[in-house]
Amino acid sequence: MNIFRLAGDLSHVVAIFLLLWKIWTTRSCKGISLRSQGLFALVFTLRYLDLFTTYISLYNTVMKILFITSSYGTCYLIFKKFRATYDHNVDNFPLQYPLGACVILALIFNHSWDPVELLWTVSIYLESVAIMPQLWMIQKTGEAESVTSHYLFALGAYRALYLLNWVYRYFEEDHFDAIVVFAGIIQTVLYCDFFYLYITKVLRGQRLKMP
């Protein structure tokens, strides 16, 4: 564990609670993509199957359970509890392409053909593009509420901080995993446009509007 990874994990936790807090306090999931949240639930389910096979640390186990339960909780709030406020008309990013591409990519580039390992690999690729339905939705509606912007910033920062963690681990621990680094770069690049708007607009008190 190093400071970048801890900061990344904490940023991820902040993102999750910001989103839950926004939905719960406004009693609305307006502007939130169920497709993205569903992908995150799928990502954590596929990735953390090793909860049953490998123990790493209490921290690791607690975080995994937190990510899985909160992602399903978020989906429940959008799909059931506050369904009336869900913008299903604009949440229509086609999911078959990223899903298909991630499965094919995992079959070509993986560490081993162990089933759990293959599902882990799919989850790594899938996480890198899971935010696309959300970004697509903002692009279509042309704006995002400020809490949604903070959520997205924290979520993007999480993988960006992990990139620093991988640089650190490469030099300090001689640890390098090409799959996560490749996916992490793609994931972070997808947020770049949003980061720019967030820094130039939201942090100056303006609403996030698409140019």
């Binding site: 990874r5 994990d9 991820h12 090793d50 490998t54 790493i56 640390s57 690791n60 975080m63 995994k64 990510f67 560490h111 081993s112 162990d114 390992e117 882990w120 992990y162 963690n165 640890h175 995993d177 996560v180």
Partner: peptide
């Protein structure tokens, strides 16, 4: 080499 005996990151 890759450490596939458990991924320690989240």
């Amino acid at each position: 080499e890759d450490d596939i005996e458990g991924h320690d990151e989240l």
